[in-house]
């Protein structure tokens, strides 16, 4: 079996803005790091006080033989836990446990054109795609949506690829999505990463304009908050309270429940759990519509509950 765990050492930390930090990781053991293709992410285990969190971060540059992985971490408020630790406590030289890269957001080499749409820190995997696609000479266009005060920062991050087909738009209404999606040539694939609302908007608009399913790709980390609820563990007994700012998976992990996970973004299927009672609120992209409607399964990394109580086969 392929080794999945890796010890990373923090090689550099660079403050990009009061809320954004660029982190460079290298192997802590000296063993070479596996290739992290554009679109890949790594999961890091972060110890925040007495809590242990596992967070996923996209690589912002394809890492083929560079021996390092680069990430950008936004300090969120309220933090899901990990970002405050990364911003306030992580120092150069620190060693972090984590996973090898996994890629659930790859680009499709047969695409005639790649349209990349980012929102806020969702730019991270798109930076890697832009670098890789430009290097291959592929046809690519990128639109980044940013809060007005971050336009300059993202413009600077994109400076190596500056051109007419790389644009940063300030404010939510800065980009005419319908016009953009209507003028794409046949064979275009669209990739969107950012807040769930933006990804839903892009996906909804593309579907409405007649884009086939297989041409719309979305990355999703961290849309985990919502109404609090309680999980009852049918096999092991016990109850776990899921707070408004944590995912069901995080709450289970904090309670010491051994729950499997990989992407932590509702894409890979690793965390699939059987539901015995209660009504899940599905937020994943793994289960089919029928499976969701059946209410028999839930992906705890992103999904929550419509009912106050969810009884899981754990």
């Amino acid at each position: 079996m392929i080794q999945r765990d890796i010890a990373y050492r923090v090689r550099a930390i660079e403050s990009l803005s009061p809320t954004l930090k660029r982190i460079v990781l290298e192997s802590a053991t000296g063993d070479p790091l596996p290739v992290g293709a554009a679109g890949a992410h790594i999961a890091l285990t972060l110890k925040c006080g007495d809590r242990i969190l596992r967070n996923s971060y996209s690589l912002i540059a394809p890492s083929d033989g560079t021996g390092r992985y680069e990430l950008i971490v936004r300090r969120t408020d309220p933090s899901r836990g990990g970002s405050h630790f990364v911003h306030d406590e992580l120092t150069v030289g620190a060693v972090l446990a984590g996973y090898v890269p996994h890629n659930l957001f790859p680009s499709f080499s047969h695409a005639r054109k790649h349209l990349l749409i980012g929102g806020g820190v969702g730019i991270t995997p798109l930076l890697a795609h832009l670098a890789a696609l430009r290097r291959e000479g592929a046809r690519v266009e990128l639109h980044q949506l940013a809060a007005a005060e971050e336009v300059a920062l993202f413009t600077q991050l994109l400076a190596p690829w500056a051109g007419d087909d790389v644009q940063v738009h300030g404010g939510r209404e800065g980009l005419d999505l319908e016009a953009l999606l209507s003028r794409q040539p046949l064979g275009t694939h669209v990739y969107v990463c950012g807040p769930a609302a933006l990804m839903d908007r892009v996906e909804g608009m593309a579907v409405a304009l007649g884009w086939p399913d297989g041409r719309i790709h979305r990355e999703s980390f961290g849309a985990s908050g919502g109404e609090p609820f309680t999980v009852r563990l049918a096999r092991s007994g016990g109850e776990v309270r899921v707070g408004p700012d944590e995912s069901m998976l995080q709450a289970l992990e904090n309670a010491g429940v051994a729950a499997p996970s990989l992407c932590r973004g509702g894409a890979c299927g690793e965390c699939l759990t059987r539901v015995l009672e209660g009504e899940p609120e599905h937020r994943d992209h793994y289960l089919t519509a029928e499976e969701k409607a059946s209410g028999q399964f839930v992906m705890p990394c992103v999904s929550r509950a419509h009912s106050d109580m969810l009884v899981l086969d754990l």
């Binding site: 209507s182 003028r183 040539p185 046949l186 275009t188 593309a206 304009l209 007649g210 884009w211 041409r215």
Partner: peptide, 10 residues
Amino acid sequence: RLAQEHMGFR
């Protein structure tokens, strides 16, 4: 004609 067409075309 196809070279001029856009996504959404059937």
